[in-house]
Design a protein around this nucleic acid. Sequence first.
DNA 1: ATTCCATGGGTATGACCATGACGCAGAAGA
DNA 2: TCTTCTGCGTCATGGTCATACCCATGGAAT
Lengths: 205, 205
Amino acid sequence: MPIWDLLGESRRPRRYGPGQMIYLQGEMPSCFYYLQQGEARSFISLDSGEERVLAIHRSGDLMGEASFFDNCPRVSSAMTTEECLVFAIDRGQLDEIFLRHPELALPMLQYLARTVRILSRHVGSASLPAQQRIVRYLLDQPTDEQGQLHCTHEEIGQAVGASRVTVSRVLGQLDREGALQTGYGSVLLRNPERLRQMAEPMMPD
Amino acid sequence: MPIWDLLGESRRPRRYGPGQMIYLQGEMPSCFYYLQQGEARSFISLDSGEERVLAIHRSGDLMGEASFFDNCPRVSSAMTTEECLVFAIDRGQLDEIFLRHPELALPMLQYLARTVRILSRHVGSASLPAQQRIVRYLLDQPTDEQGQLHCTHEEIGQAVGASRVTVSRVLGQLDREGALQTGYGSVLLRNPERLRQMAEPMMPD
DNA sequence: ATTCCATGGGTATGACCATGACGCAGAAGA
DNA sequence: TCTTCTGCGTCATGGTCATACCCATGGAAT
C-alpha cells in the first residue's frame, strides 16, 4: 500500500474529470492534496500568459504541500490531465494524522526535499542554452515501452521555456546527427548516452 | 531562543573562518547544518564555470537539509562569507532530537516548504527579461537601516544570471527614472512601490 | 476522396543580451 | 602622495532566440 494512503484513511477521495483545476496560483492554501490515482500537472502562469510546467504528478504524489506548510499564496496552479482521485488534507486533519502516524513526518520531509532537488535542477538549467534544456527535459521524461516519448514540440517548448521553432530546430539537428528520431507527435531516443553527454557538460575540473 | 537551537542542544558548534566551504556540490550528504551565527551563501556551479547564487543564509538558517533528507548528492555548494558558528547534525543525532522534540517536525516541514517557494520563484523568474529579474532580486534582498542594499553589480548579475553590463544598464536607467539610486557598492530603493509594479506584471486575468 | 486542423519544418527580421574592450572614479594600501 | 585595485559606465560586435509568417504533411471527420 502506498505510504500516503494513510493520509486518506477513513475518508473518501474526490473525483476530478480531465482538465479540471485542483488549485490556483495566488490563492491562499487551506489544504494540500494526495493524488491517489490519475495524472495532473502543476504550472506557473507568467505575465505573458505563458505557462511553465513545473511537474507532472502521477498516482502516489503529493501536490500543493509546499504552499500549504509555508502558508503563503500558491506559486503555481494544478490541473488534471485525466480522471483523478484526490484527497484534500487540511490542517486539522493533518494534525490528527500526525498524532496517529508520527512516522509520516520523515517521509514527508523526504518528499519536500525531493521537490527542492527537482527545483534546484531547474534553477541550474535555467540559464543553459536551449539545446541543453531540451535534451535534459527529454532525458527526464518517462518513456513508453519502445523508448518513445509522446509529446509535441509545442509541449516541450512550454516545459523548457523555448519557442516551438527552437525545439523543432534542435530536434531536427539531433535527428540528422542520429541521436534521436522525431515522429509525428513523438520522439524516439536512439542514443541516450550521447544525449546525456551533451546534456551534462557540467564537469568539475 | 531561536527554535533550531534545540538541534545543537548539548553539543558545540564548529567555527568556520570567512571563505571556507561547508559542503560541496556533488558529494553525498551525511548531515545538514544549522547556521547559528554568521553568513554563508549556497550556489550552484555551472558547466561554464559560472556560479549561480541560490540563497544567502544568515543566523538561524538551516543549510543543506534538502539533500540530506533526500539522500542524494548535493545540488549546491555552500561557503561562508564571514566567521560562522555551525552545527552539523547527522542522521543519528536527528533521530535522537526528534525523539526528544517531536514538535520540531512541523517547523522543519515549514522550513523546507519555504525553500520550495523560493526556488519556485527562481524558476518562474528564469525566463523573464533581465530587468524584471534584477528588480525582483533587489526587492527580495534585506536592506539595512537606511533602506540600502550593499552589493556590487557583479554580485547582482551572478545572482540573477545576467552580465554585469546588463545590471549596470538596468540600474542606470532605473536611477535616471528616479526609482532607485545607485552608489558605490550600494543601491538605495527610492520608490519600492514603483519597482514592485514593474517586477510583478503577473496579473491573473 | 475531400476538407479541416494540428503538427512539423523552414526563413527573415529584430530584440535581447553576453562578450571583450576601454576609460574613469572611488577606495585602499604603500 | 602615488599606486593599484575594484566598481561602474559605455561602446561595438556577435550569438541566441522569439516572433511572425509561410508551406508541407499526418490524421481525423465528413
